[in-house]
Computed example of a mutant assay.
Amino acid sequence: MTSDTEDGSRTIALDGIQRRLPHRYPFLLVDRVLDYAPGEWLLARKNVTANEPYFAGHFPQKPIMPGVLLIEAMAQACGLLAFVTREHEPGAELPDGAPLFYLVGVDGAKFKRPVVPGDTVEFRASLQRVVRGIWLFQADARVEGAMAAAADIRCTMRAV
């Protein structure tokens, strides 16, 4: 569900995320969209819990969220931004069925701090430009305002 709040922010709850992304547990890595501006930016959140399936095998004595999953979560935030941007374009028609936004590139990935059980990660995706069907984003993941990871992400939209 998408809703506008009294302060003008736009949120998307889990059911609205699931209408826009094909991912499901355990691979859906965005719990809620906190706010967005179509064509500009999106802020999303994930509450990292101790029972995430990857913690059983990813450093079980000192569990940390795998970096590749941080990249995937940032890419999911980018896909959500692309989707809401397309939804808000005047006269835009989305392909039959929900389109998929495929990850086509990751550049300059940096990891600054581990993400551990109990953390709340905020993902910010910023749309830089769209060139010949390739959407270019800057994305980052933060915990309590501290940078955990960042990358430049490219994706493209395809009909299902």
Rank of each mutant, 00 (worst) to 15 (best):
T2G: 08
T2M: 13
D4F: 14
D4Y: 11
T5M: 15
T5W: 11
E6R: 13
D7C: 09
R10V: 14
L14P: 02
D15I: 09
G16W: 00
G16V: 07
R20Q: 05
P22H: 07
H23Q: 14
H23A: 13
R24L: 13
Y25F: 13
Y25R: 02
P26K: 01
P26H: 01
L29G: 04
L29I: 01
V30Q: 02
V30S: 06
D31A: 10
R32K: 12
D35R: 01
D35T: 03
G39A: 10
W41N: 05
L42R: 03
L42N: 01
A44D: 04
K46V: 06
N47M: 08
V48F: 01
A50N: 05
N51R: 03
Y54R: 05
A56S: 14
G57L: 11
G57F: 07
H58V: 07
F59H: 02
F59C: 07
P60D: 07
Q61A: 15
M65N: 04
P66R: 03
L69R: 06
I71V: 14
E72L: 06
M74P: 02
M74L: 04
A77D: 01
C78Q: 00
G79C: 10
L80A: 11
L80Y: 02
F83T: 12
F83H: 13
V84F: 06
V84G: 11
T85Y: 05
T85C: 08
R86N: 11
E89Y: 00
G91R: 07
A92N: 12
P95M: 05
D96L: 05
D96C: 01
F101P: 00
Y102L: 15
Y102F: 15
Y102C: 14
L103M: 08
L103I: 07
V106D: 09
V106H: 06
F111A: 13
K112N: 10
K112I: 05
V115G: 08
V115Q: 08
V116M: 10
T120L: 14
F123C: 04
A125W: 02
A125H: 04
S126M: 14
L127E: 08
L127S: 14
Q128I: 15
Q128F: 09
R129H: 15
R132V: 11
R132D: 12
F137H: 11
Q138K: 15
Q138W: 07
A139Y: 03
A139R: 05
D140H: 11
A141I: 01
E144F: 01
G145I: 10
G145S: 10
A146I: 10
A149Y: 00
A150I: 05
R154N: 11
R154V: 05
C155Q: 14
T156D: 04
R158G: 09
R158Q: 13
A159M: 06
A159K: 08
A159Q: 12
V160Q: 14
